[in-house]
Design a binder for these strands. Structure first.
Length: 733
RNA sequence: GGGCGGUUAGCUCAGUUGGUAGAGCGUCUCAUUGACGUUGAGAAGGUCAGAGGUUCGAAUCCUCUACCGCCCACCA
């Protein structure tokens, strides 16, 4: 007679069960017994190798594993691809901070080679931790296909992708005002800029005593780079000055200021006149282009002034600001000054204040027409002229890609409509080196010869571009680079486009949009049919989890305390897609109780069905209680099936909880105690109990893989189940 | 400034095309060791933010208001 422990002890089973699954090889769809099943693919959003997984990852992993396990049990050739992301700037700045803290050194003290080897060590250990965490979450990932955004196959993919886009003229080198991060010493993309509200002072003043128009600014130090004053074309106050030019001496710097009329100027802000600093403001640069104004750089990469006399030269911008204000006051040029709320741009990873600078960088053109080489996209045929922006918009607006919840599609379109060329080069060391080589020409003033290719060109004197690529360039290729692209692999034909991309809504632009861009361009296919977005996990008081608040919930602490199944179920229970959720420890505890309830249901049924036949299962409704149970079970099954089809995971979990506890346990098991005592209902009751248990285990397995498999294994040892692993047992239809 | 959400039981949230409000946790009462005390039976608790409209009927659709939140954006 089989004896289960009185209570389910997750720690006793989890590691062994994961090993059992992994040893079976069935996480790899090529090993599944039925090779006729339709493929079903999910790529794991590769976690950054910057540390460890948090509860947000745990939520994503849980949802994806539910989908994969469910489809696998349905007979689909389910493939879930694991991997990690080198995360370029994020990882580099993390390691920089560690080295600075522990050794007081900077990356330049170590040199490129030594520094990179430190980063790689860090990335490796971070990777190992992450893999351990994923396994501990029960993730049924095919480890034989594990990928890394910076490994060899992905490097080939990145270089191939770069070269195609370069050859198509979509990737180009451009000189323009970019977001420079003086702290990280690199340029960053528009999407990596984070705006923060700060208090600033708005100064209103004149360049000189005889200058006709006063201007307002929060950054007086940049005014030494001004080449114009812009006013609104219809502003009556300044009509007579439009078109005129003035020479002034501003804080020791000679300026030539032209008065221009531009629609973008707000008449009601400040004096209605804007000092135009083309080299250090994106907006001003646009105005300058429209009016053909001179770009005059006055700030360098270290946020120090490059012009002026000893008052400001080589001073940090903040110090120079004070000096300029002082000079203005000395010369009685300040008309007014007052506090103002200002949104300043900072770098996402380093927190540095962005300094717009004119620089030569690599860009990806999103509005430039090109001919799509290959297309499986409805509505856009091969050879047709299109743009990347159009591709990105089209596949979503034509519902070839379904974004869930659909309100995020609006956010997506909004982003696309305001999208500018993507700056893809970075002045950091960790990442994919740009596959472009230069050959300097001896004659001064001529452009070097340029070569773009997968490998370095033959011949001497070729020097590779020093820059690396934005990390999202390589993650944008993820759905197909993980399947072997650019090689025409079997995997690629079988598993791409992928079925679902599940991730947090916070990386809709960074990643989802970039994957759509890259996949449609390079493969002529959508990357995934559905983008399913989950919300952010918050603490019990609904606050953001952050280090400073000290309210971070470590998923591994929770799984150690309550078991993985409890955490998984708590994460999806009563949580709608895309909506932020509060995660209280009590909720996890409650779900541990649920797992234990299931365990004891199994225990009861085993104790009371010694002679029942578990393998030839059927339900026989003889009594009212039987009928009710049968009805409830069928309802539950139907609801779970339709809910999962519609990605209503919370509805499915709610129904399973309710049926298992309040129908099977509370009602039927109680009724069974009488029915088992009656000879004419004994056998049918045993059979019904067994049938219900088996079905419940199957339905719950995607949600709570460990406890269900643990019970299944106990049953299997007694030859009570049809398949050795619940992992691949047949899903009830 | 532009865009998108939210406001439902003490707390955290579900509520699938409009048909007399649900869950988990918490609270209160009772039961008892019988698979499980990580239990069972039961109870209390909500004019679904407010106002107006459409409808036989609105938490659900429309309009407005109030408050909260998120994303985007260099009114210098």
């Amino acid at each position: 007679m089989l004896e289960l422990d009185k209570a389910y002890d997750a720690s006793k089973y989890e590691a062994n069960l994961y090993q059992l699954w992994q040893d079976s090889g069935l996480f790899n769809p090529d090993n599944l017994p039925d090779q006729t099943g339709e493929p079903y693919t999910i790529v794991l959003p590769p976690p950054n190798v910057t540390g460890t997984l948090h509860t947000g990852h745990a939520l994503g992993v849980t949802i994806q594993d539910i989908l994969i396990r469910w489809r696998r049990m349905q007979g689909r050739r389910a493939l879930w691809i694991p991997g990690t992301d080198h995360a370029a700037i994020a990882t580099q700045s993390k390691v920089e901070k560690i080295i600075e803290k522990e050794e007081g050194k900077r990356k330049t003290d170590l040199g490129r080679e030594e520094f990179l080897s430190r980063v790689e060590n860090f990335a490796q250990s971070s990777h190992d931790t992450i893999v351990g965490q994923l396994k501990s979450m029960g993730a049924s990932l095919d480890w034989s296909r594990e990928a890394f955004t910076l490994d060899e196959p992905r490097t080939l993919a990145v270089r191939t992708a770069f070269k195609s886009m370069f050859d198509d003229g979509l990737i180009y080198r451009g000189h323009r005002v970019v977001n420079w991060d003086p702290k990280g010493q690199t340029v960053i993309s528009d999407d990596e800029v984070v705006h923060q509200e700060r208090d600033a002072i708005l100064y209103t003043f004149k360049y000189s005593a005889d200058f006709p128009i006063p201007i307002s600014t929060t950054r007086p130090e940049t005014k030494v780079g001004d080449t114009a004053v812009a006013v609104h074309p219809s502003d009556e106050r300044y009509q007579e000055f439009i078109g005129k030019e003035y020479d002034v001496e501003f804080c020791g710097v000679a300026l030539n200021i032209k008065i221009v009329a531009d629609e973008s100027v707000e008449k009601d802000f400040g004096t209605g006149a804007l000092g135009v600093t083309p080299a250090h403001s994106l907006i001003d640069a646009e105005i300058a282009q429209r009016h053909n104004l001179e770009f005059k750089p006055v700030i360098n990469e270290f946020a120090r002034m490059t012009v002026g006399d000893e008052r400001i030269f080589d001073k940090k911008t903040t110090a120079a600001r004070e000096a300029v204000v002082e000079w203005l006051k000395e010369h009685d040029l300040v008309i007014s000054e007052g506090p103002i709320k200002q949104n300043i741009a900072t770098a996402e990873r380093t927190g540095g204040v962005i300094e717009p600078l004119p620089k030569v960088q690599w860009f990806l053109a999103v509005n430039k027409p090109f001919k799509l080489k290959h297309s499986e996209i409805e509505g856009i045929s091969a050879g047709q002229e299109t743009t990347l922006k159009e591709l990105m918009r089209h596949v979503v607006s034509s519902n070839q890609i379904d974004i869930v919840p659909d309100r995020f599609a609006k956010t997506y379109f909004n982003w696309i409509d305001n999208l500018r060329d993507w700056c893809i080069s970075r002045q950091i060391w960790y990442g994919h080196r740009i596959p472009v080589w230069y050959k300097p020409v001896n004659e001064i003033g001529t452009e070097p010869e340029i070569y773009c290719g997968i490998e370095a060109p033959d011949g001497d004197n070729w020097i590779q571009d020093e820059d690396t690529l934005d990390t999202w360039f390589s993650s944008g290729l993820w759905t197909f680079s993980t399947l072997g692209w650019p090689n025409k692999t079997e995997d690629l034909g079988k598993f791409h486009p992928t079925d679902v991309l599940e991730t947090g809504h916070d990386i809709l632009f960074f990643w989802i949009a970039r994957m759509i861009l890259m996949s449609t361009y390079h493969t002529g296919q959508i990357p995934f049919k559905k983008a399913f977005l989950h919300g952010m996990v918050r603490d019990a008081q609904n606050r953001k989890m952050s280090k400073s608040l000290g309210n971070i919930v470590d998923p591994l602490d929770m799984t150690a305390k309550y078991g993985t199944d409890a955490l998984r179920f708590a994460l999806v229970f009563n949580t709608a897609p895309g909506t932020d959720m509060a995660l209280a420890e009590d909720k996890i505890k409650g779900m541990k109780h649920f797992g234990n309830k299931l365990w004891n249901i199994a225990r009861y049924i085993l104790q009371n069905t010694e002679s029942a036949n578990f393998t030839a299962l059927k339900f026989e409704a003889r009594t009212e209680a039987d009928k009710t149970l049968q009805e409830n079970l069928e309802n539950c099954l139907a609801t779970v099936n339709s809910s999962l089809e519609q990605f209503q995971i919370h509805t499915a979990s709610q129904n399973l909880y309710d049926f298992t506890w309040h129908s099977l346990a509370d009602v039927y098991i109680e009724a069974s105690k009488l029915q088992l005592a009656e000879n004419n209902t004994k056998e049918s009751t045993q059979s019904n109990l067994a049938y219900s248990l088996i079905t419940t285990l199957k339905l719950l397995h995607p949600f709570m893989p460990f406890v269900t498999e643990a019970i299944w294994q106990e049953l299997h040892q007694n030859k009570l189940t049809e398949s050795p692993l619940l992992l691949t047992a047949k899903w009830p239809e």
